[in-house]
Amino acid sequence: MNFTSRSLDGIELITVDADRIDAAVAIQFKDRMREHMADASGRVVLDLHRVDFIDSSGLGAIVAVMKLMPQGAKLELAGLTPSVDKVFRMTRMDSIFTIHTDSESASASHA
C-alpha cells in the first residue's frame, strides 16, 4: 500500500496508489496513514481515483483515519470511482466527508 503526497495550493494531496482498499490491506492502510497524518495540518485531501474497489473494512479504515486526524487538520476525499462512490452513498458516509470530484476541484474549492 503506497501513497504519493504533494502540496497543491495550500492543501496536502495524498494519492492512494492501489486499486483496492479491502480487508487484506485495511489495517496496513490505517497504520500507514496514522504515521503520515501525525503532523498534518489544514486540509488533507485523499485522492482515491486509482481505487476501484472498497469493502466495509476499507471504508472503516478511512473513517478511522478521519478520527485520528490531529486537531486543526481535516480529511477530505476526492476522485471516488463508481463502485467506491456507491459504497459511500449506500452507507451514508458521503454525508460525513467533504467529497470532491477530483483533486483539481478539491484545490479550487475553499471548504
Binding site: A64, T91, R92, I96
Partner: peptide
C-alpha cells in the same frame, strides 16, 4: 441495521457496514 451517523466524530462506526451492504 444501518449505522447511526448522527453522533460525534469520535463515535462514528468503523465497522458493522457489511451486513447492511449485503442486505441492501
Amino acid at each position: 441495521t444501518p449505522a447511526d451517523l448522527d453522533v460525534p466524530l469520535q463515535d462514528l462506526p468503523e465497522g458493522g457496514f457489511g451486513w447492511f451492504l449485503i442486505r441492501s
